Simulated scan of single mutants.
Amino acid sequence: MHHTSTAGSNKWLLSEPNKDSQARIFCLPYSGCGASMYRLWPKFFGDIEICPVQLPGRESRVRDRGYKSYEDLVKDMIEELSPYFDKDFAFFGHCGSALIAYEATLQLQTKGICIPKRLFISSQVAPHEGPFGRFLHLTDEELRIELEIITRKMGGVPIQDLLDFQVSILCKDIGMNKRYSDKEIVQLVSPLVTFGWTNDSEINPNQMTGWSQYGEVSQHLIEGDHYQFLSAPEEFVKIIQGSMK
């Protein structure tokens, strides 16, 4: 058990959630990245607070031991985030982190803790159809090149020493993704909202239809590439706001 948070400081979040927010979306960073990847998003979509989640082993939690499986990661994560489930809330995940968002929704439902209002999934196949993705088969050097591209897309400058470290995180995250296999289809109480992107070279939107077997699903196709969501495009924000009403 990694329970270490104290009143007013929770290392799973970049900042303490606002007590007055109407709703919260816990946004999970995708493979190899930390919570700062959401820095281009506004703090609120209307009256919905955006709460980027900081996973262990990266950025402000660089010294915290990582996990071997999404299941173990999520078990500790939902325990630490549980004080903030007192408002309407949802999980958002893109690519690999969509599976963490799904696993969190599933564990909360299975344990009878509480039910997220929505599960937002971007650019990922349904769990029973994975593991899937080009990244799962790349060498360390190829992953390094991808991380340079991602860093620039997020408005940063790649730093060589840092990239070595990020590659090691990415390899661990990819390992968790590969182990998250042979999943059965579970009916979720939380409605799902899926986002496919017209020019996504990693996941074709047609490969996301399997989510419709997990319960009530609203599917959306938005203009843009695999990284378009990083800039919080207007149509994307509107759909999220409308879904949380």
Results as ranks from 00 to 15, higher is better:
Gly224Lys: 01
Phe195Gln: 01
Ala90Asn: 05
Lys11Val: 11
Arg24Lys: 11
Lys238Leu: 00
Gly155Cys: 06
Lys117Tyr: 05
Asp76Pro: 09
Leu14Val: 15
Leu81Ala: 06
Asp200Gly: 08
Asp20His: 12
Glu148Ala: 06
Lys87Leu: 06
Ser69Ala: 09
Ala7His: 05
Lys238Val: 01
Asp86Leu: 08
Lys178Arg: 15
Pro127Ala: 02
Leu28Val: 03
Gln228Ala: 13
Thr194Glu: 14
Leu138Ala: 08
Leu106Thr: 13
His3Gly: 09
Phe91Glu: 09
Tyr102Asp: 09
Tyr67Phe: 15
Ala7Ile: 06
Arg61Val: 06
Glu235Asn: 11
Pro127Glu: 05
Ser122Met: 00
Ile159Thr: 12
Tyr70Asn: 08
Arg179Thr: 12
Tyr102Val: 13
Val189Glu: 15
Tyr38Glu: 02
Tyr30Glu: 12
Cys51Leu: 02
Ser69Pro: 02
Asn10Glu: 06
Cys171Lys: 15
Trp197Ala: 02
Glu142Ile: 00
Glu49Ala: 13
Leu14Trp: 13
Ser243Trp: 00
Leu136Pro: 10
Asp86Val: 05
Ser231Gly: 08
Val186Gln: 07
Val167Ser: 10
Thr151Ala: 13
Val74Glu: 04
Asp161Gln: 08
His3Ala: 11
Arg39Met: 03
Asp20Arg: 14
Gly133Thr: 06
Phe85Ser: 01
Arg24Met: 11
Leu81Met: 04
Leu162Phe: 12
His94Ile: 03
Gly93Ala: 01
Phe91Asn: 07
His128Ser: 04
Ser201Trp: 08
Tyr102Gly: 04
Val186Pro: 03
Ile222Tyr: 01
Lys19Gln: 14
Pro127Leu: 05
Thr194Leu: 09
Gln166Met: 15
Cys95Gly: 05
Pro17Met: 09
Trp197Val: 02
Met154Asn: 13
Gln228Ser: 11
